[in-house]
Design a protein around this nucleic acid. Structure first.
Lengths: 204, 204
DNA sequence: AGTGTATGCAAGTACTTGCTTGCATACTAT
DNA sequence: ATAGTATGCAAGCAAGTACTTGCATACACT
């Protein structure tokens, strides 16, 4: 969509790998399949990326470029909990949609595939911990209900916001929709979360 | 824990396979690893289960025994939306916890591993569709907010309730807790969902 | 024209994986 | 004691996978 014009061989390969990683996982994706999907000879992959892990690394660098991640939590206006959560959800989902759910799926592989673990590092866990810590702070500030453990609140938030992309790309239950539709849906999901996780006195 | 006494060879194998499937997926789990984990010679596996898919089948039969699934939706008192959702969440999570998250993880493999797809069939999707339909009915009854598409509501529900088990077993972020702790947590998560997804006029 | 660069194609290597075979060993039941 | 059953052990096979090598072809730049 964005670069309909000339897509380099490298880009085609990485994009194909992303699609396949998302639906088959890292171990379940063969270099042959990547080559076929990218419309490239298998040897070209190794000439350009050295190894299968090399593709992963290149992909990781693209992740890093877009990676907003939990930085939203450190936004200046983080006093406004609802706005902060919405911003976080938006950046999470848009980047997840952009890489076709590959990052989400790879998080599952990280535990058992060393290369993936190295790529992601403790990123996902750090994200989670950071969000949990933020949740704890907002609990003390009276914004969030305090009868639920902060890390459970954080897990629930990620689950809620990533489910939309996950069910579509990773599990293939439906087609991934337009950006506009998705934006509305994300708002609604955050709204659900905020209505349920926000403290009872606070209100909308 | 439950059967500390005599566990048959078959049971040990299936249990070991469940643990490994949950954390590595079906394709990522070798029969050698299953044998080692079960403390059994690899040949024994093939003598008793014929093939790797045979273990899967045996595991599927155990799933079926516990399988409550979306049957909760068809409960007689399904007019009480909150109670119905809570019952659904409880049965989902307890069975997920029982099989160590294997079922959740296998749902990811279903798309690309034929044996897994055959085992699960359209079960997960039917569950999802059935729940979405229930959501639609309760929307019309005025119990649930109607600005969100029913299937998004359904996805969000499953995501919220299964995330707790998923983050622990599949992604290994933490140890899986006691039943009592989990029960409380499930209640809280359903409460979050209900507060956020219930229609504004209805109230708790 | 000639040289370098990117790619395709065919074949092959080392290793893993699901699965098999043949034989030895322990236990149980009659 | 004898026979049947369940398991272990060692070795191996066929298929697939990541990765390599050697050679041919197309294109760009000078």
């Amino acid at each position: 969509m964005s670069a309909a014009a000339a897509e380099t061989t490298d880009e085609r390969i990485v994009r194909a790998a992303g699609v396949l990683f998302a639906e088959r996982g890292y171990a379940g994706t063969t270099t042959r399949a990547i080559a076929e999907t990218a419309g490239v000879n298998e040897v070209t992959i190794f000439r350009r990326f050295e190894s299968k892990a090399g593709i992963l690394r290149a992909m990781g660098e693209r992740f890093a470029e877009q990676a907003a991640g939990f930085s939203a939590v450190q936004q200046p206006d983080s006093e406004d909990t609802h706005a902060t959560l919405l911003a976080l959800a938006r950046s999470e989902i848009s980047s997840a949609a952009e890489n076709g759910g590959a990052a989400i799926r790879l998080a599952f592989d990280a535990r058992t595939v060393p290369e993936v673990a190295e790529l992601l590092g403790d990123g996902p866990k750090r994200n989670m911990d950071a969000l949990a810590e933020y949740m704890a702070v907002r609990q003390e500030a009276g914004d969030l209900r305090s009868d639920i453990a902060p890390h459970v609140l954080a897990e629930a938030f990620f689950a809620l916001t990533s489910s939309y992309v996950m069910y579509r790309t990773v599990m293939g239950y439906a087609e991934i929709p337009q950006d506009s539709d998705m934006d509305t849906t994300v708002e609604q999901l955050v709204d659900v979360y905020w209505s349920g996780a926000g403290s009872k006195k606070t209100d909308r």
